[in-house]
Design a protein around this nucleic acid. Structure first.
Ligand SMILES: [Mn+2]
Ligand SMILES: [Mn+2]
Ligand SMILES: [Zn+2]
Ligand SMILES: [Zn+2]
Lengths: 139, 139
DNA sequence: TTATAATTTTGTAGCGATTTCAATAATGTA
DNA sequence: TACATTATTGAAATCGCTACAAAATTATAA
């Protein structure tokens, strides 16, 4: 993956084997995985991969700005290599996290007009279309 | 506090002494405290209060819908007895969490039109007005 | 190439937040 | 009062994450 390697060097990160594999996983699986999920998947292909490396690597990715943290639940930290401003919907039935677009520019907020905004996170919880459909069939 | 007690019974929660004190703290201090902060404050007045009780009580408050969880950072779970839909701004300088209003109705989202929304959380991180002011003075 | 230095990865130990669980205390009921 | 139910407590266990030092890898220079 030449592009992945370049993405890392462009961000000031040396493209080690582990870093390339972790970033590749993040870009190919847009499922907002936890450290646990990433490690569990990659350790099949890289048996020596330690969980510490996954933690270190993601921390570095976030610091260098090529990955964002998703804090939709208090007991699971998820990661997303898509750093564009977009929302996250978590289905309380199937636990899947969906991306959605929202208009950041037209977002009307009051009380904090003179504050400087660095990051905006919009999280919605509910039931996804597929789970709604499955629930209807049952009844 | 008659109203606090009624608020609990109305929500199907027996108004024990500890529960009343914890809810009172949440309603009087709108600082989005952590379990640690609540316990540290209340143990002065209730020396036997255990941290487990604070955990249990908040879990119950959230389940019964009279408190919401604020997950703006991955390493601290905060609580808010104001369950109206409003946004939270965390200042990365002074760590204060501010409330702000936003227009939930006019929020334009795409890709998840047919989903059922239960909760909407809007988190913004940045620098608050006061910290901006203090930074300007220094320079 | 070889020796040496710098960086990266790894595994273990430690830490802090949260949960589990059983004993104790408080409250409700007959 | 006697008994049943519920709530609180504190200790131990668990879980996610970090700190740290050894081992492995990679870069640099002789
Ligand atoms: Mn995403
Ligand atoms: Mn609030
Ligand atoms: Zn679903
Ligand atoms: Zn501030």
């Amino acid at each position: 993956m030449k592009t992945i390697s370049k993405h890392l060097t462009d961000s000031g990160i040396k493209p080690s084997y582990q870093r390339i594999r972790i970033l590749t996983y993040l870009m190919e699986n847009k499922n907002h995985p936890t450290v646990e999920m990433i490690h569990k998947e990659l350790v099949n292909e890289i048996p020596t991969l330690s969980k510490t490396t996954v933690y270190n690597t993601l921390k570095q990715f976030v610091e260098k700005g090529i990955t964002q943290v998703i804090n939709i639940e208090d007991n699971e930290t998820r990661y997303d290599a898509d750093i564009s401003t977009h929302g996250h919907f978590k289905c309380l039935k199937c636990n899947k996290v969906y991306d959605f677009k929202f208009d950041n520019k037209n977002l009307e907020v009051s009380d904090i007009e003179d504050f400087d905004f660095f990051q905006t996170h919009l999280y919605i919880k509910g039931i996804c279309k597929n789970c709604k459909y499955l629930l209807n069939i049952k009844n």
